[in-house]
Write a protein that binds this DNA or RNA. Structure first.
Lengths: 197, 197
DNA sequence: TGCCACAAACCGACTGGACGGTATGAACCG
DNA sequence: CGGTTCATACCGTCCAGTCGGTTTGTGGCA
């Protein structure tokens, strides 16, 4: 039970921080607010986290790990580049909708991290980016993807959709998340597919 | 000449604020830093701006006005929905690249404004959004755009590209801005165009 | 032209409060 | 007892915004 408590304190703090950062922004949220919302005290919080920006990083870390893991799992299943890309895209859209608040914080508050941690985040995102780029390159080699537009632009065209989700998608809105995932993926694939126009 | 000086102080402050907000973020930039970078004093600055967040809003205001004006100009020229959409898209990408720093600040720091000003910004963006949506709807009526995907998703698919530019486009990079504009627009149009797959 | 009155532009030291982080020690546990 | 887990009071810093005062420009008047 002792172990239960220790983890539950850290978890409650992270949960509260996530909520408040998403609602008010990182800079507008004080440590005091967080610990009050979590039902703990500052002393407890600083026992598990070394600083305020440590909280931010912990939130990022969770999301980065999750996304990379899912990408690897899907890629490992194998298949044509197009099939893999489709599966990856649909999955990342759904996942991003499940973690909308994390996304909001992520894209807003990266620059509030220390320089080292920003580098770490960039490194992790680059891993993801490069793995995805390899899929696209493979698709070009297989002849299913166009090669008249730079890969960097093609990739930006998809990442942008994921990036933008927190800005428009609403859980209360009419759109279903799996439908949106299929639609955005379809749009991306139609754009990237080789065809004679 | 007196008039020259007054405007140049306000302009210098805005210029410095733009630079610093983009480089360090709004919350990490002190008013003192801004006025030093602008070569003026706090007193001078507070003579022209009522608060720090007034600076932020002024930056937004400039960009919002510019974009809306350009949209209206292009729409006014007339033409098929597809032609107008193409022109609008290419223009907004180029403009957004010209104002990359503004975009960086915009998407990062909106939530640092007062509630009223956030509303004002949202209202202005909605104006733009609705004008664009009308173009898309017209394109559907003309039979050139698909109608099997909600307009909101189609629009998000394009706005996301614009939104994402500050995150990947580099002026020193290999891509030319007009080329990128054409490429992103082509990808969007291919996605939105009605066709029998 | 020289002088005055008034206003706008500008200066910069100061303040009041918020906030991240710490120091100290109590309770509890093995 | 030694170490972990927390509670509480406190500290030092930073910073947006202010305010009394000074300079600069401007129009009127003799």
């Amino acid at each position: 039970m002792g172990t239960m408590r220790t983890t539950s304190v850290a978890d409650e703090v992270l949960r509260a921080a996530l909520e408040l950062f998403a609602a008010q922004g990182y800079a507008n949220t004080s440590v005091q607010q967080i610990v009050e919302a979590a039902g703990v005290t500052k002393g407890a919080m600083y026992h598990y986290f070394s600083s305020k920006d440590d909280l931010l990083f912990a939130i990022y870390e969770r999301m980065l790990s999750l996304q990379k893991r899912r990408l690897d799992e899907i890629t490992a299943k194998g298949g044509s580049a197009e099939a893999v890309v489709r599966a990856v895209c649909e999955d990342v859209v759904v996942t991003s909708i499940d973690f909308l608040r994390e996304g909001t914080i992520f894209f807003r508050s990266q620059h509030m991290l220390t320089t080292e941690r920003q580098k770490e985040v960039k490194r992790r995102r680059r891993e993801y980016h490069d793995a995805f780029a390899e899929l696209v390159t493979r698709g070009q080699a297989e002849g299913s993807f166009r090669d008249d537009i730079p890969v960097s632009v093609l990739i930006a065209n998809f990442f942008s959709d994921v990036h933008y989700l927190p800005h428009w998608y609403s859980a209360e809105g009419p759109e279903d998340k799996t439908e949106v995932a299929e639609q955005l993926t379809a749009l991306f694939l139609r754009g990237i597919r080789r065809s004679d126009d």
